[in-house]
């Protein structure tokens, strides 16, 4: 394996994932990795009537779009690897939705890389959340947040 190349692993899956083993696989025993920053996004219940979020995605494009974002991160920062796992289907409050991890020799690139990938994933990767209520009805589609757009825009090259 080329030790200078950035390893990019993108997975879209219905199943849950184990962050510890995924991060260990990303590091892969490499001794030149000094920092891994991992973000885990969970299904959050803002009130007490959310039964689950249903994550819909655009098969094919979802993976391609996250890969494109990860590749851009690898061009911006000296990253050894990026891992992104995004679940789809029905996900209950407290369950994991997404894992993004960035590995580098030093912490700053790992922090920036993971942050960058998440900010773009939120606004560019084709996923949509629908709310399901505890009374069995389906609620609204979650609205996109202006704050997420602002978070993405701050990465514009100055």
């Amino acid at each position: 394996m080329d030790r200078t190349a950035s390893q990019i692993v993108i997975r879209i899956q219905a199943d849950d994932f184990d962050g510890e083993s995924e991060i260990a696989a990303l590091i892969g025993g490499r001794a030149d990795i000094g920092a891994v920053v991992a973000f885990t996004g969970l299904c959050r219940a803002d009130g007490d009537d959310l039964a689950a979020l249903e994550l819909e995605h655009y098969p094919g494009m979802a993976e391609a779009e996250i890969r494109r974002i990860a590749e851009e991160a690898c061009q911006r920062w000296p990253l050894h690897g990026i891992l992104a796992i995004h679940r789809h289907g029905r996900i209950a409050p407290g369950e994991r939705i997404v894992l993004v991890a960035a590995a580098s020799s030093h912490r700053q690139a790992a922090f920036d890389g993971a942050n960058f990938v998440m900010d773009f994933l939120k606004t560019e990767a084709p996923f949509w959340k629908k709310e399901h209520r505890t009374d069995g009805t389906s609620g609204d589609w979650v609205s996109a947040k202006d704050a997420d757009d602002e978070a993405r825009k701050r990465w514009a090259e100055s």
Partner: peptide
């Protein structure tokens, strides 16, 4: 060609 709302993943 795909048509969809603003994205809300993550």
């Amino acid at each position: 060609i795909a048509l969809f709302p603003p994205m809300t993943g993550g």
